[in-house]
Design a protein around this nucleic acid. Sequence first.
DNA 1: AAGGCGATGTTTTTT
DNA 2: ACATCGCCTT
Length: 808
Amino acid sequence: MSQYDENDAFEAAAIPLSQRAVAARPARYMDDLNPEQRRAVEAMDGPVLMLAGAGTGKTKALTARIVHLMRMGRARPNEILAVTFTNKAAREMKERVGRLLGEVVEGMPWMGTFHSLSVKILRRHAELVGLKSNFTILDTDDQIRLLKQLIVAANIDEKRWPARMLAGMIDGWKNRALTPERVPSGEAAGYNNRGTELYAQYQERLRTLNATDFGDLLLHCVTIFQTHGDVLAQYQRWFRYILVDEYQDTNVCQYLWLRLLAQGHRNICCVGDDDQSIYGWRGAEVGNILRFEKDFPGAVVIKLEQNYRSTPHILAAASGVISANAGRLGKTLWTEAQAGEKVRLIGHWDGEEEARWIGEEIEALQRGTRGMGTYGLEDQAILVRASHQMRAFEDRFLTIGLPYRVIGGPRFYERQEIRDAMAYFRLAVSPEDDLAFERVVNLPKRGLGDKAQADIQRTARMAGVSLHEGARELVASGGIGGKGAGQLRAFVEGIDRWHALTLGAARVVGGEDDALVEEIGAAPKPMDHVRLAEVILEESGYTAMWQNDKTPEAPGRLENLKELVKALEQFDNLQGFLEHVSLIMENESEEALEKVSIMTLHAAKGLEFPVVFLPGWEDGLFPSQRSMDESGLKGLEEERRLAYVGITRAEEVCTISFASNRRVYGQWQSQLPSRFIDELPAAHVEVLTPPGLYGGGFGAAAVSYGSTSFDDRVGKADVYNSPGWRRMQDRAATRPVAQPREARGIVIDATAVSAFAEGDRVFHQKFGYGIVIGIEGDKLEVDFSKAGVKRVVAGFVVDADQADDLPF
DNA sequence: AAGGCGATGTTTTTT
DNA sequence: ACATCGCCTT
């Protein structure tokens, strides 16, 4: 039922091997593998690196390999360690293995994410790192709150040295498997040179709270492996074969984790694609995959290069872009598929027009009026670099009524109301959970402000007890005045009551926990945990808080709370629920209705769509300026891999676009087409002419729109240097005060629009008439009669006299 | 204690 | 532009 069911892996081993050994019957799972895939499946022993390009059937090979290992009697299901990064990937792999086996074999208990597997291991050996086996896993909120307290306590200006940043540093250290004492002295700059000290304090606090953060799950395991040879040896013996998916995304800590476990037999198979490493910013080390053969001498390296997903043009475009990266392991994707459409490239005046055009294009493809076939909405996706780009599309699609769904929005369990409710549940399960107490003590408002909360903290600290007990004492001693007193008393008693009810609930389940069984005698009537959850939310006033809330999102939040309670049904008790939620952030209720998908490039990894739109290919946005500033060439190369990932998501139609103007942080900015566009091989690209732009003016200037296709003789360098391209870039770079513009299909000639002066009466399509009151570069400050004072790009307004002649 | 206002910092995201 | 956050006012 649960993901890491304690249907214990080790005990499962007690079943004799003979019962499992399956007679060698025709190996169905091998039938439709290509020679390379087959090689990856059959190279069972020793280190194997499977370099699997996009769409080359890597999961197929990986799952077949697992089945093969079992069929050949090399390992029982519970002796195979298969690691993924996401729960989704783990789930899919389980399903596929199950399907290949064609029979219900008891699950593979050691197939899961790095984190879930680490939890499983850590619970068995928690005491080795000073934890109890029922430790809790903090979410980011709790982590930040805890750090903030430490920073304030250390008398460090929290504004100059924010807790978020420290959290990031600590995370980075943990990703590199650095415990506080191992952090290089040079790296603790900031926080008054007390960064590592704070890190150490934080670890101490976690231990006191019997808690870990996400990074700890892995790091503690590594620590245990490194310091307890006997424990490590046990697991090395246990996991006879190790498989790792998305190896290019592993960080140092994960690498150590794997290497320690694989040290003995070296039966480790890593699957990945260095060209799809896009998580360097969160600690992933491409170096891990580049170094594999050195780390594991004698490794068999198998390249999967036959692509089953995309057309040749799409593959060629992707290959062209990625070839600009240095230090690749190098693969050349090929396909037997027919040519199909070239990658389409189109420029737009601004982001809104881009969204409008894509919306129309999607509808046209849906109707099949593009002469390129018919594609349902669920076959089409828009992949953006940064999530704020999604807005333009959402706005546009809402106005034209085009159904869409955003993938990877805030996850269910990350929503405020869900976290609040969870904090209540946590308090009910363990009243001493101080972080949960802090979160909801004044939520809903109980008249307990900063002062009251500080008093509770002080009382608790002096007595060396939890906040819950501290609050009880404070109430008893009358140390808290007036209105808050009664409410705090009610809160404290509420926690007591709910806690008692959870204990009661344990008996219903059968009381596997001895400690709980002993206490049950004192507990009141047992209560079903789903009902209990409702009671808690009701009695605490939390539900009422949202019912009384008049904001438009309140109903949705209540809906989510209902959903949360419903989700509880699938668990045995509140404890069990909380145990698992921290690691499993399921994206549920994604109806597979006919909808266009909108998501970031990161979220798109591993997915594929017949039709893909890649908007916003503009320097600074994509590649992201920040990425380049922070990580230089490395950053640029990662951005380029992102471009590669984007293009290779497309099966049949891939459309790249950019806009000349875009609002960035509220300010209009001229944009240059992405340098990645220059890297697209001309022979595989078709340049489209945007509608409403014809002849002369903007049309000719921008990207040689006049021609319908790059001349095949023109190499990419020439494209970049082509007159039209050049002119457009010059234009963008010099940013003339007045640019020609397109208004409702009417092209206004640039020469007719002279530069503006203060006092000019102008017209703006959205804001109406106004007077120019200031000029700064190509931006005008205009006092609009209806919209008030706005800053607009000069190209967006016309002389009011001229506007009068326009047929609006 | 709670609501309102100006300074601030804006990627990508899993567990 | 826009949301978040800390501070300041009531």
